[in-house]
Amino acid sequence: MKKYTSTLVKSCCLAAAYILFAASIAFAQLPGSGGPQPQEEEEEDNTPPPTGVPIDGGASLLLAAGAGYGIKMLRDRRNARKQ
């Protein structure tokens, strides 16, 4: 039991460190560093307006799915050890 707890703590610490590291380098662009700029409505160029990309929704769903899968795997492993 102690070995399992130690492994779980190490895994959680490693996952937290990875998430913090990934979050710190996830900034794609600084404000004003490029990309399409919003246009005034008076201008009638043939260029399309900038598009918004909903990254947060998909990333949240993937994160929730990964967490659910991890919990399922831990429960299955725990039930297998009890039998």
Score class of each variant (00 low, 15 high):
M1D: 14
M1N: 12
K3Q: 14
Y4H: 12
Y4G: 07
T5W: 11
T7C: 08
L8S: 09
L8H: 03
V9D: 06
K10V: 04
S11G: 15
L14W: 12
A15N: 11
A16N: 11
Y18Q: 11
I19F: 06
I19K: 03
L20R: 06
A22S: 14
A22M: 12
A23L: 11
A23G: 07
S24Y: 05
I25D: 02
A26C: 13
F27Q: 15
A28C: 03
A28W: 02
A28V: 08
Q29Y: 09
L30F: 09
G32R: 02
S33A: 07
S33N: 03
S33H: 02
S33D: 02
G34R: 01
P36W: 01
P36H: 02
Q37P: 00
P38K: 02
Q39M: 06
E40K: 13
E41C: 06
E43M: 10
E44C: 07
N46V: 10
N46D: 11
P48R: 05
P49Y: 04
T51N: 06
G52T: 07
V53F: 04
G58E: 05
G58W: 06
G58P: 00
A59P: 01
S60K: 12
S60V: 12
L62G: 15
L62S: 13
L63N: 05
L63M: 12
G66P: 03
G66W: 01
G66L: 08
A67H: 05
A67L: 15
Y69M: 10
Y69P: 00
G70P: 00
G70E: 00
K72M: 04
K72F: 14
M73R: 14
M73L: 10
R77E: 01
N79D: 05
N79E: 06
N79M: 03
A80R: 09
A80N: 05
R81V: 08
K82I: 03
K82W: 02
